[in-house]
Write a protein that binds this DNA or RNA. Structure first.
Lengths: 130, 130
DNA sequence: GTATTTGCAAAGTGTTTGCAGAATA
DNA sequence: TATTCTGCAAACACTTTGCAAATAC
């Protein structure tokens, strides 16, 4: 049974205030700037815990770093992220889920899992380019 | 202009013989076992080069390690991989490409890029579980 | 002959772990 | 009080880099 502690509460709160994915290190820095002296170990351990509990989603940034984000709801999500500002919107993806199931059946696979990531440049960020 | 060298040829050949994603380290080991004493640096540098040339696809294994695979054709691919044996089949995904375009338009994003990964247990591997 | 590539060893990243003291239930 | 959590520093795993010798063109 996980305990309710100061560091954990602050980490969760900080994550919930973001609508972006964030690296463990960046999260650590934000907390530090906010005056919370929480160690990297605790940040990593807490993120692990939250991922395990399904309260946080992870994605890899393609350069060996993992990014975390508070999960906006109770189920599995897919995100559309802005490469410029980091904004990450959860998107409806039943089309993909259905397609995945068909592919699974067609190839005789079992226990299918899927991952979908969309990234681009959001409207506001695109406008800033003049 | 990239040069045609022994180490590079052997790396490409080895990758082409696999229908799975493989880690740089594992590739290095395979080459060593085959009698090719190619340094880790060269393996990494060559993989980078090939990715840049679009001849190799990369994915992250979710634990901070990158996996590489010879790209079976000229364009962008999506794979269905077996978590048990590593087999990675390229799959048709126009449904997903279309869906991605719709999501892009609906959210006012530009320059959309997407990544789709399917993983499961292939037929043969599932049969082995009794 | 010139520019590129290689191997080596060292340095860099991001993440995990052992342990003793602090905190929670 | 019994267990879980924290911070610290050291350990890790994977990847990148500087440099001099080797190689391709």
């Amino acid at each position: 049974v996980p305990r309710r502690t100061g560091p954990r509460e602050r980490i969760v709160t900080e994550l919930q205030q973001l609508d972006t994915f964030i690296a463990a290190q960046a999260l650590y820095t934000r907390l530090a700037l906010a005056g919370d002296r929480i160690s990297m170990s605790t940040v990593y351990r807490t993120l692990h815990l939250l991922v395990g509990l399904g309260r946080v989603d992870v994605m890899s940034d393609g350069h060996g770093q993992r990014l975390y984000r508070h999960r906006p709801g109770l189920t599995h999500f897919h995100y559309l992220t802005c490469r410029r500002c980091g904004l990450a919107r959860a998107v409806e993806a039943s089309v993909v889920e259905d397609w995945a199931e068909q592919v699974r059946a067609a190839h005789g696979f079992a226990h299918l899992d899927h991952k979908v990531e969309l990234s681009g440049v959001c409207g506001p960020c695109a406008d800033e380019t003049h």
